[in-house]
Computed example of a mutant assay.
Amino acid sequence: MQVLEGVSEFAAVAETSSFTVAGKRLGISTAQVSRQVSALEHRLGTKLFYRTTRKVSMTEAGQLYYQQCRRALDELEEAERAVTNLQLTPRGLLRLTAPVTYGEGTIAPILNDYLSRYPDVEAQLHLTNQMVDLVADGYDLAIRLGKLEDSTLMARRLTSRTFYVCASPDYLARHGEPHALSELDQHRCLLGTQDTWRFQEQGRARSVRVKGRLRCNSGWALVDAALKGMGLIQLPDYYVKDYIEAGELVSLLEPYQEREDGIWGVYPHNRHLSPKVSFFLDHLTAALKG
Rank of each mutant, 00 (worst) to 15 (best):
E78G: 09
E77K: 13
R204D: 14
E201H: 10
N129H: 07
E122D: 12
L48Q: 06
L96A: 07
H42Y: 09
Y114N: 06
L148E: 12
A108R: 15
L115W: 02
N129E: 03
R117G: 02
E60M: 13
A136G: 00
A180W: 02
A142L: 07
R43L: 08
L232W: 01
E60K: 14
K289A: 13
E104Q: 12
Y171N: 02
V37F: 03
A123G: 03
S168I: 01
H187N: 04
L181D: 01
V223Y: 05
A167C: 02
H269W: 08
E5R: 15
D170P: 00
N129C: 04
K147N: 11
D137N: 10
G231S: 09
E5T: 06
G262A: 15
E78T: 13
D133N: 11
T52H: 00
D113S: 13
L127S: 05
V83I: 13
I233Y: 00
Q63F: 09
L26H: 07
L288E: 03
G203K: 09
L73Q: 06
S29D: 09
R117I: 03
H175G: 07
F19V: 01
Y66N: 01
D261V: 14
R259L: 06
T84D: 14
K241W: 08
F280L: 03
V210L: 10
A31C: 06
T16L: 13
Q63R: 15
F163W: 05
S160P: 00
L249H: 03
R204F: 11
G138E: 11
Q36M: 15
E245N: 11
G146F: 01
S160L: 10
Y66L: 14
L73N: 01
S38L: 12
Q202P: 01
L253W: 02
S218I: 09
K47H: 08
A79W: 01
Q68L: 12
A61N: 09
L134Y: 03
L111R: 04
A226L: 04
R43I: 02
G138F: 04
V208T: 01
T20N: 12
P169E: 13
L127C: 05
L48Y: 00
D140L: 00
D133F: 02
H187C: 05
S17G: 06
L191D: 07
E41A: 09
S57R: 12
L181S: 04
T97M: 06
E201L: 12
T20G: 12
L184C: 04
G146Y: 03
V266F: 01
G265V: 05
A108V: 02
F199L: 08
R215Y: 05
N85G: 12
K228E: 15
G92K: 07
E260T: 11
A61R: 10
P109A: 11
L44V: 11
V132C: 04
R81L: 15
Y164H: 13
V208G: 03
T159S: 15
V56T: 07
L227C: 06
P268F: 00
L235T: 09
A98L: 06
T196Q: 14
R198M: 12
R174G: 05
Q186N: 10
S151T: 12
L273W: 00
H272C: 10
V100W: 03
I244R: 10
E41P: 00
V223M: 04
K147A: 14
F10I: 10
L249V: 01
L191H: 02
G45K: 08
N85Q: 14
G6P: 00
V33P: 00
T196W: 11
G6W: 06
